[in-house]
């Protein structure tokens, strides 16, 4: 029995599928967040080198991972939308961008707050922090381009091009920033976030990452549904839906 995957690629059926999935992911996210934070704060031992400050790792690393992962996902969906002209994939890409930008900002913020006690300054031109900042600019570029174009179809495709060009550039930017950083400071400041890695710390961080992932999926699905409604407002099924919604 071949599952007809393409059934879900039409916005109408995806709308209802997403509707069913959102509660699942949001519940999973809340449970995992609670578990991760509990382990992070109550189970993980004090770090002998950094004292308690290292506990920021439980939100900093997941946020950084998510920011990069979501940008790649956004580029993939945008690429599919451009190649196969499927409206839904472009909607997904548009829905991913704000959450990705939020995680990038979080990674920068928690990175700076962690840097203050450890390196003594809020901002250090460390290769990772700098490329994270550039990633934020890429997100903002994508979102502002899409906001500037009124016609949704053109906005999708233009956004797709800039997302794909961006994703090609991410490794280049990362390595050039790494090279640039070592050039300036001689030996790179060896940023040992914390000696790798007591098991409880690791599990705490992994749980938090999965929690962030679940949260991201839930929020993105909700935003996708809203975009679907926005763009399909003239179709019949949205008409009936609204009839029901009142």
């Amino acid at each position: 029995m071949a599952i007809n995957w393409f059934k879900y690629s039409s916005p109408a059926s995806f709308y209802f599928l997403a509707g069913k999935m959102i509660p699942l992911f949001s519940i999973a996210a809340t449970i995992l967040f609670a578990a991760g934070l509990y382990i992070g704060f109550f189970v993980a031992p004090t770090d002998f080198q950094q004292g308690e400050a290292y506990r920021i790792i439980f939100i900093h690393v997941p946020a950084a991972w998510m920011s990069m992962f979501l940008y790649v996902m956004m580029a993939i969906w945008a690429g599919i939308g451009l190649a196969f002209n499927t409206r839904l994939s472009s909607m997904m890409a548009t829905a991913i961008a704000p959450t990705g930008a939020m995680f990038t900002f979080l990674a920068l913020w928690t990175g700076a707050l962690w840097g203050k006690p450890m390196w003594g300054t809020w901002w250090v031109w460390d290769a990772r922090l700098t490329s994270e900042l550039i990633l934020l600019f890429l997100y903002i570029g994508f979102m502002s381009l899409q906001a500037a174009i009124d016609d949704p179809r053109r906005a999708d495709k233009a956004g797709a091009v800039i997302a794909l060009v961006g994703v090609v550039n991410i490794p280049i930017i990362y390595f050039s920033v790494k090279w640039w950083n070592t050039l300036h400071q001689g030996a790179t400041v060896s940023v040992t976030q914390s000696p790798k890695m007591a098991t409880t710390m690791l599990t705490g961080m992994l749980i938090m990452s999965i929690a962030c992932w679940m949260y991201a999926i839930a929020v993105i699905l909700i935003r996708t549904r809203t975009i679907i409604l926005e763009r399909e407002r003239h179709t019949a099924w949205v008409g009936e839906l609204r009839g029901v919604a009142q």
């Binding site: 308690e52 506990r55 920021i56 704000p98």
Partner: peptide
Amino acid sequence: GGYGFYVWGSYLVSVACIAGE
């Protein structure tokens, strides 16, 4: 352990961002 400001600063902003979103 003395780092309360930084740890809670980052977690508060994280919660604020997520709730905000």
